[in-house]
Design a protein around this nucleic acid. Structure first.
Lengths: 168, 168
DNA sequence: TCGTATAATATGGAAAGCATATCATATGGA
DNA sequence: TCCATATGATATGCTTTCCATATTATACGA
């Protein structure tokens, strides 16, 4: 009995330790992704918030400025300025929403998105580095990792909504 | 032979697909962590760059402003302003470096770091959400995930250095 | 010891952020 | 239908932040 409960205790401790390790690694990852993002922004002459919005547009667009401001947690007026700059730089286009003529839909200009991704991934070496990392894992393991990352992203989205949403 | 090479091809394709899936999930995760971070910053009355720096200080500090500006990819003069605000808010302290009297070391004020973490993790529900996610995985699986995350963070660090470093 | 390099900060002009006002359009109810 | 109110985007003006440059203090090599 002492051995059985002993290894149970060990398992629980391992799990606790791993929970912490995962969270810690996640925090570190966040820091590094932020740094990477800033580097990319600098190359493209885009300030922090601008790149974040562009990223959101390429991913979730076409999208209205108001929806975007909620997503990004930015003041609507701030967003007008950001969109002005992105439009001036040829990154995005603003179209009128046919269904609601007050509204505008923002979409990424074709071809430009690829430029970001290339910088993000290729020029920085991140793409090759990730291929190397992935190569170390079996297919089933990568499946696991991808699933974990998606779940974590979703958890982050919910958490961000919780924080940002209560601002109303 | 046709069957053997066929399943080989399938395996290669799976791997390609998973590589893409992992990168995509990583990008999504980056977006969500950025959103979460902004939400936290808003609660603490800290703008984007300020929180990023504070995060770096709590993690790598005590650290000199110049080293910090390199890490964060910010202009030294910008950093002075950021540190002024962080100091005014009681988040950090500036001490003279005993070895080099030109230099300053910045360190996080005790107790405050915990406040950030609490907001990041607890108030936003991220902590509980991550516990739930982790609970779905076996100990060995978590071990795998933690290793992957660390490797990815390191890859991100190298990539960010590559982009930022060539600015010199 | 002197010239040069480095670290941090001060200064001032440019840019960005944000609260508020404004204008156009939508929507629900009398 | 008409009107009151709500909503979406942007304009305006003030405040804050950013950043190139200059400045001050210290280190270090010739």
């Amino acid at each position: 009995m002492s051995q059985g409960s002993g290894s149970q205790v060990t398992a629980v401790r391992s799990r606790r330790r791993l929970n912490r390790a995962v969270k810690e690694a996640l925090r570190e990852l966040g820091i590094q992704l932020t740094r990477l993002s800033r580097g990319v922004g600098e190359r493209l002459d885009l300030r922090g918030g601008d790149l974040q919005c562009l990223d959101l547009i390429t991913r979730y667009g076409p999208i209205s400025p108001s929806a975007l401001s909620r997503q990004a947690g930015l003041h609507p007026a701030t967003l007008t300025g950001i969109l002005d700059r992105l439009q001036l730089g040829g990154w995005i286009a603003r179209d009128r929403d046919p269904d609601d003529r007050r509204s505008v839909v923002v979409r990424a200009e074709h071809g430009r998105g690829a430029e970001i991704l290339r910088l993000y991934l290729v020029d920085s070496g991140m793409n090759a580095a990730m291929d190397q990392v992935c190569a170390q894992y079996a297919v089933e393991e990568l499946e696991l990792v991808a699933r974990f990352l998606s779940q974590t992203a979703r958890a982050g989205a919910v958490a961000a909504d919780t924080l940002g949403g209560s601002r109303a």
